[in-house]
Design a protein around this nucleic acid. Structure first.
Length: 282
DNA sequence: TCATCACCTGGAGA
DNA sequence: ATCTCCAGGTGAT
């Protein structure tokens, strides 16, 4: 039985929050903004170019409190038991922002491929403990990238979204430090002004990089989960794609039901249902 | 406010 | 081989 604050790396990497990770031997190697991380399960070790891994691993979270709170819901409680060591990680906001813009109407493999292409074309080549990787592009680089280069990364119709989104950050219209400090609702409104960011993508960015624990991304999978296990609590949920208004209404009901750590609940539920359907991530 | 529909791309199944 | 459908959605009518 592992301690409550022991992270299970593979479970966490394969829970749908990150894309740029690869397992090489016993090591998980990942890109987080300008940083590279190497994680090993046993014996546990976490190392990075920057020297700081606590931030990424959310060492400041009170897991005991969070897990016990979200486990008050029986189904979430089972999901928590089913995926011991599953954690949220705190991602580089710009990478997270671009990643989920790229995620729209695409498959996991495809998203990963787009992001890898961006790193190779626009990132910095780095060597870390014998592994060669490319870091994520800097804001300015992506903001000034040509459409031709972006299209060569196979972004398809997302190329113009990525370009404009990067420009918005470069111009200061999007300020991640500020978004981190402000409240969930304000952060969401700000993000949704960007072309290519709707409710779902905004929620992913808010949860995975802006410390908004009440963010609860509702995608096709989450919707299925709500319909399957929580129909009587959220009677407005259907299998049809949701409109803007319905999404917001449902989210309010969700936070009311799941509480301030709804984002953590979502992570466990999502992982549970993906496993049930034998869907792997990376 | 809501329902349709198109959208780059690559992989899976018919 | 060729086609169709779909994948962690979103924007434009």
């Amino acid at each position: 039985m592992q301690k409550i604050d022991t992270i299970n790396i593979e479970t966490t990497i394969n829970s749908g929050q990150v894309f740029l990770w690869n397992k090489i031997g016993d090591r998980w190697i990942g890109v987080d903004g300008q940083d590279l991380l190497i994680l090993e399960q046993s014996p546990f070790s976490a190392r990075s170019l920057s020297g700081n891994t606590d931030n990424f691993l959310r060492k400041d979270d009170n897991l005991k409190k969070i897990l016990s709170e979200i486990s008050r819901d029986k189904i979430v409680g089972n999901a928590v038991k089913q995926s011991p060591g599953l954690r949220l990680v705190r991602q580089d906001p710009f990478q997270c922002y671009i990643s989920f813009i790229c995620s729209s109407n695409s498959s996991i493999q495809n998203i990963k491929s787009m992001l890898e292409n961006l790193c190779v074309k626009f990132g910095t080549r780095q060597e870390f403990e014998g592994h060669v990787s490319h870091t994520f592009p800097k804001v300015e680089t992506l903001a000034n990238a040509s459409m031709k280069d972006l299209m060569e990364c196979r972004l398809g119709f997302r190329a113009k979204y990525v370009k404009e989104a990067a420009r918005a950050v470069n111009l200061g219209k999007i300020d991640f430090a500020w978004l981190q400090k402000t409240d969930y609702r304000t952060a969401l409104e700000s993000l949704k002004k960007i072309l290519g960011i709707g409710n779902k993508v905004a929620d992913c960015i808010a949860l995975f990089s802006l410390d908004k624990m009440e963010a609860f991304p509702i995608d096709r999978w989450t919707q299925r989960i709500l319909l399957k296990y929580y129909k009587k609590f959220f009677n407005s949920v259907t299998e049809k794609p949701m409109t803007e208004k319905k999404y917001e209404k449902l989210h309010e009901e969700i936070v009311e039901y799941f509480g301030p750590y709804a984002g953590y609940s979502q992570q466990f539920l999502f992982k549970m249902e993906r496993d049930l359907n034998k869907k792997n991530w990376l």
